[in-house]
Amino acid sequence: MTSPLCAIVGVGPGVSLAVARRFAREGFSIALMARTLNRVEEYAQLLRDEGAEAHAYQIDVASPASVADAFIQVEERQEAPDVLVYNPSIYREVLPSQLDPEVLVHDFRINAVGALSCVQAVLPTMRTRKTGKILITGGGSALNPLPLHASLGIGKAAVRNLAFSLHAELLPKNIHVGTVTIDGAVSPDTRFNPTDIAEAFWTLYQQPAGQWEREIMFE
């Protein structure tokens, strides 16, 4: 029997790597996906050194064509994901009155639209299997906007709305969509420790049908 596959989009040393380790510990194979292939390959090698099956893929979530191609590669090399984790975001400090509209559109493609592209890439197989988990990293700026984080807050508000809409749409199809909303700065040795946040993602994954939450607030 093959191991289930968790595809993690937007890989860095914090939440996403902690999530990868948490799922790998439970026997999942891992597909790590990010824009910079050399960097994501380092994380894949780190997981392999820890005994996991992990592979790296290049993806530009701002490009639907790149997203589609990346998930084709995942299926060809491993298999279609059982779990999708969407983690990318762009953080920049600029007041909303000074935010260039084109910059906002660029950031929005990564903070929100990329999530939709990735969901649409994995949904056909999940629909066929009649099962699947789609987990999205949210942010507290969706609920408590800060002027300097306007671009990120707009994106996080949108991706939260998208997650809730998908949750309602796909619930009857036995596909669980949920978001972990992190209302604080991720850092070790704080209450926003990546390892603890990863446990919230695992909690969403483990929830049985009939008890699916659409959001866990980490605050």
Score class of each variant (00 low, 15 high):
Met1Gly: 13
Ser3Gly: 06
Ile8Gln: 08
Pro13Gln: 11
Pro13Ser: 11
Val15Arg: 12
Ser16Trp: 08
Leu17Met: 14
Ala20Asp: 02
Arg21Glu: 05
Gly27Val: 11
Ser29Ala: 12
Leu37Ile: 13
Asn38Arg: 13
Glu42Gly: 14
Gln45Trp: 07
Arg48Thr: 06
Asp49Lys: 13
Gly51Phe: 08
Ala56Lys: 11
Gln58Phe: 08
Gln58Leu: 06
Ile59Asp: 04
Ala62Ile: 04
Ser63Phe: 15
Pro64Cys: 03
Ala65His: 15
Ala65Gly: 11
Ala65Met: 12
Ser66Val: 08
Ser66Lys: 05
Val67Trp: 05
Ala68Gln: 15
Gln73Asp: 13
Val74Tyr: 10
Val83Gly: 09
Leu84Ile: 00
Leu84Val: 05
Glu93Ala: 13
Ser97His: 15
Gln98Gly: 03
Pro101Asn: 02
Val105Gly: 00
His106Gly: 06
Phe108Asp: 05
Arg109Ala: 01
Ile110Cys: 02
Val113Tyr: 10
Gly114Ser: 10
Ala115Gly: 15
Thr125Ala: 14
Gly132Tyr: 10
Ile134Lys: 10
Leu135Phe: 04
Ile136Thr: 07
Ile136Gly: 05
Gly140Trp: 02
Ser141Ala: 11
Pro145Arg: 07
Leu146Lys: 13
Leu146Ser: 11
Leu148Met: 14
Ala150Pro: 09
Ile154Trp: 10
Lys156Cys: 05
Ala158Val: 03
Phe164Arg: 14
Leu166Tyr: 04
Ala168Phe: 12
Glu169Gly: 00
His176Trp: 08
Gly178Ser: 01
Ile182Pro: 02
Asp183Leu: 09
Ala185Ser: 10
Ser187Gly: 06
Pro188Thr: 01
Asp189His: 15
Thr190Met: 06
Ala200His: 09
Phe201Ser: 04
Thr203His: 10
Thr203Leu: 09
Leu204Phe: 11
Gln207Asn: 09
Gln211Pro: 08
Trp212Asn: 04
Trp212Ala: 00
Met217Glu: 06
